[in-house]
């Protein structure tokens, strides 16, 4: 079943002469339980797509259907209970004055979830932190631990869709591996649908089955990870991207 359907999406910033188009006529479908990847360089518009989907960027046109709901300008509370996002920089995505406990309990209260105490312990367990981290402040956590808290926050309202905006690019490779494993496990155990944005083909190729390559706001190509591994790219830009990625890991 289709979880996400985006048709002819355009996103822009500014108006009049200052208008800059960030995303141009992008269409894609993501099935339930699928992991879809968006790859491109900085400024290619890949994060903007996610931000328009959750309503952080209001200036978009086209049609978006997420979890059966056709999206307008406003997002309902039910939408936020169903679709959540994990941000790139774990150092910037947690409120510096709130403990882990406060972050998670506030989210649950917003979604009207009962038995907060039990759920928090459960969530911290799910993301591999354990209850000992419950009353810590962000500055008492490492980058990887912060990202786990951010993932726990996203999972708190029991969503079915997670949008991952470069979730590991600010982390060390060894920590990145832990987070990628965690994301894979969560996807398996909870049957989540992911859209994952990254500039790193290795990371996207590890998790995603289908990958869209973006350049200057447009999809240049959508291909399966197997095709990518066989280097069966048809577009010149994808070839270039593949060449530089393969070169850097050889």
């Amino acid at each position: 079943m289709t979880a996400i359907s985006v048709q002819n999406m355009n996103v822009w910033f500014g108006t009049g002469a200052l208008r800059a188009d960030a995303v141009l006529d992008v269409s894609f479908d993501v099935n339930e339980g699928e992991i879809f990847g968006l790859v491109g360089e900085s400024g290619s518009g890949k994060s903007t797509i996610l931000r328009a989907m959750v309503g952080l960027v209001p200036t978009w046109s086209g049609t978006m259907q997420i979890a059966g709901e056709t999206l307008g300008k406003k997002r309902s509370q039910a939408f936020f209970g169903n679709v959540q996002m994990v941000f790139q920089d774990p150092y910037a995505s947690l409120h510096p004055r709130h403990t882990v406990d406060r972050v998670l309990s506030e989210v649950m209260r917003l979604h009207g979830i009962a038995d907060v105490d039990e759920r928090i312990v459960q969530l911290l367990d799910d993301v591999g932190l354990g209850a000992g981290f419950r009353f810590r402040y962000p500055h008492q956590l490492s980058g990887g631990q912060r990202q786990r808290v951010a993932i726990a926050r996203a999972l708190a309202p029991k969503p079915t869709i997670l949008l991952l905006d470069e979730p590991t690019s600010a982390l060390d490779v060894s920590v990145q591996a832990e987070i990628l494993n965690l994301l894979a496990d969560l996807q398996q155990s909870q049957g989540l649908t992911y859209i994952m944005v990254s500039h790193d083909l290795g990371v996207v190729g590890h998790l995603c089955k289908r990958i869209a390559v973006m350049k200057d706001g447009e999809f240049v190509e959508v291909l399966s990870v197997e095709a990518m591994r066989r280097l069966e790219a048809s577009h010149a830009y994808t070839k270039h991207l593949l060449a530089s990625s393969i070169q850097s890991v050889s």
Binding site: Q77, M85, F87, L94
Partner: peptide, 21 residues
């Protein structure tokens, strides 16, 4: 900042964001 975006994505209203965050 991302932490304000994050709480907006939990459906928090402007009143709560201003006073609590």
């Amino acid at each position: 900042s991302d932490y304000i975006h994050a709480i907006r994505l939990q459906g928090a209203g402007p009143m709560r964001i201003v006073t609590r965050h």
